[in-house]
Design a binder for these strands. Structure first.
Lengths: 207, 207
DNA sequence: GCCCCGGGTGAGCGAGCGCTTAGTACGCTG
DNA sequence: CAGCGTACTAAGCGCTCGCTCACCCGGGGC
């Protein structure tokens, strides 16, 4: 139950759009199980059990186990894109917008590590069609960040050698947080967000 | 066969210490399979098939499928540690040593992406004892990088707010290469290594 | 009051899993 | 060339997987 309670605070609210209630409970159970053990090591019995239902109940709301992963992945990527888009399109200098994008994106990866892990690392478990759909969302995420960096370069605020490569490095810094961040560790999501935002501003040579 | 040939050039040579020949072939087959599909999605039949042997042959050389992952993970981490240690202990300024560490570590993740993926992302598939052993090696890797950064700070060459956090960010940049690097993509391992080394020097505020 | 229908269950199917066992081919020793 | 150990295979065991099916239960319309 500790995991359910742990995620119940900050993460569960993100799945409010999923209805009916039983389908949402199954989805949340799947996120937790996939994050803990990985997609292939998770059984449908485990997911149903965490949701307090029989194994067969899963198939009333989802056609296959993969559909669960697909739904989670799409909703998660849409949320990630929304975070980056909001930061990219706000008022402010390129440096402010980049720092905002990085710190909020990192906070999402650290605070919602359960979801972020599934979203970032279980892509290869999807079939080709679903993967292609998710990859398109991922490219849009990259494009938002690249856009900010290009703005900074155009304005003369940033000093960047390789915009595309630097964009990828910025994304690496944010995404890899989901791999190492530990809720019981020495940092809060806010602290890591602030630290990484500072490091990214250094990377782009912000004036 | 294309995968076998692809890795045969740069990666297979790293497994020279594994004997006898059949055990090495099985290990290389396992690395490829684990990297492509993940540990849990890989079957022992698949590993044996790639090595041109029957399923039962695997159990002459390895007690379990997990032992294969354990062996791969240990050898890989030892190689990673050796790379970082060599860079950390060479002659030169902290900036030169840090750039060397990052570029060679990144080259290893990009060029040997097959191996690096297994080493960096399949840790949780190991049992508790094996995982603890590997985590100790991982902490040693972090310590080597942190040592260089501390040297730079002590010498007044670097300007760093949070040494521990910056170390983690540097590791993130390197490790995440294994997630996104594509052999058919626009960059060579050397180019990514040089780019990331430059970005890391900016992160630590190298003079 | 009865029917119906959507959400749920218990039991279990076929398939594929990790791993074992009985038997075989082969090279080395005397 | 007999004897033996090592490396390997064909067959298959017991189990668990994703998923299905026959049945059940409770609330709304007539």
């Amino acid at each position: 139950m500790s995991t359910a309670e742990e995620t119940a605070g900050g993460e569960t609210s993100a799945w409010g759009e999923v209805t009916p209630d039983a389908a949402r409970r199954l989805l949340i159970a799947a996120v937790e199980a996939f994050a803990e053990r990985g997609y292939h090591a998770t059984t449908t019995r485990d997911i149903a059990g965490r949701a307090g239902m029989s194994p067969a109940a899963l198939y009333i709301h989802y056609k296959t186990k993969e559909e669960l992963l697909h739904r989670i992945s799409r909703i998660g990527h849409e949320k990630a894109l929304e975070i980056l888009r909001t930061a990219a399109r706000r008022e402010g200098s390129p440096a402010e917008r980049l720092a905002d994008a990085v710190s909020s994106f990192v906070r999402w990866h650290a605070g919602g590590r359960t979801t972020a892990r599934v979203v970032q690392y279980e892509l290869d478990s999807l079939g080709p069609d679903a993967r292609d759909e998710i990859l398109a969302l991922r490219r849009q995420c990259d494009a938002e960040v690249r856009g900010i960096i290009e703005d900074g370069v155009a304005a003369g605020d940033f000093d960047v050698l390789d915009v595309k490569g630097t964009t990828l490095a910025v994304m690496s810094l944010c995404i890899d947080v989901a791999r190492w961040f530990n809720v019981d560790g020495p940092w809060t999501p806010e602290e890591v967000g602030a630290l990484d935002a500072d490091l990214v501003l250094r990377m782009v040579g912000a004036k």
